[in-house]
């Protein structure tokens, strides 16, 4: 183990770390957006749209991100759709995540029983009020653990971006190993940076999960 080597590599890893985080959070933000919209489409059973959403969810949940990225990055330009590697990464992650988020949110919405909704409307609440005061608070507390697990899953999935030549952590590690053969140091840095990225999320996630568990009434 050579500590000097570690310090020389630090700037490159930091740069890769920043890139990875940027793509990851943009992708996750899109995933939440897509997921929420898809979940609503399914929950309110909007015709035709909900069939499309169903197909989308099944397609993206049952294929690996690597294959999706290859298709978007190498396949789509052949029929005239050109996208940069970074955009491809962000949208790939967003679409994959959206399918997972949609399932988690929908299962949260589904836990609110029919009788509660009926009682609320018997009390004279409007549809919006029912959603705001009855469905939403319960659904959130039920879905949060699954949503957090999805966030961790998506952060981990960013490691495949190196395959479409984005200079992320994985790419940097592979590149440096190939150039200088300092395998041990490179792998150590790789692990450290992934811990930096995921440990905080995992710890905060555990804390949040404990907090919202008290909100699980009637489940």
């Amino acid at each position: 183990m050579n500590t000097n080597v570690i310090f020389t590599y630090l700037p490159e890893y930091t740069e890769a770390f920043v890139l990875t985080i940027r793509i990851a959070w943009l992708g996750i933000a899109i995933a939440f957006g897509v997921g929420i919209i898809s979940a609503f489409v399914l929950y309110f059973k909007i015709p035709t749209l909900s069939a499309i959403v169903k197909i989308y969810i099944e397609l993206f949940r049952n294929t690996p991100l690597l294959v999706q990225l290859f298709f978007i990055y190498f396949g789509l330009p052949r029929i005239g759709i050109n996208i940069s590697a970074e955009t491809c990464g962000i949208f790939g992650l967003g679409l994959l995540g959206g399918a997972y988020m949609a399932e988690s949110i929908r299962s949260g919405l589904d836990t609110v029983s029919e009788s509660q909704i009926k009682s609320a409307s018997a009390l004279g609440m409007t549809r919006l009020q029912i959603f705001r005061f009855v469905i939403f608070p319960q659904a959130v507390s039920v879905s949060i653990p699954a949503l957090l697990a999805n966030v961790i899953f998506l952060l981990k999935e960013t490691s495949v971006f190196s395959a479409i030549s984005l200079m992320d952590l994985m790419f940097t590690a592979k590149d440096l190993i190939g150039l200088y053969y300092n395998t041990v140091e490179c792998l150590l840095l790789l692990v450290v940076f992934y811990c930096l990225m995921l440990l905080p999320v995992s710890i905060i996630g555990g804390y949040v999960e404990k907090k919202v568990r008290f909100g699980m009434f009637g489940v």
Partner: peptide
Amino acid sequence: LEVVRIMPQMVLLFIVFFGATRI
């Protein structure tokens, strides 16, 4: 469990495939 939860499988693959030979 925590190691498996936060380490991408790709990183583990690299550690075993490249690291094991070296270490």
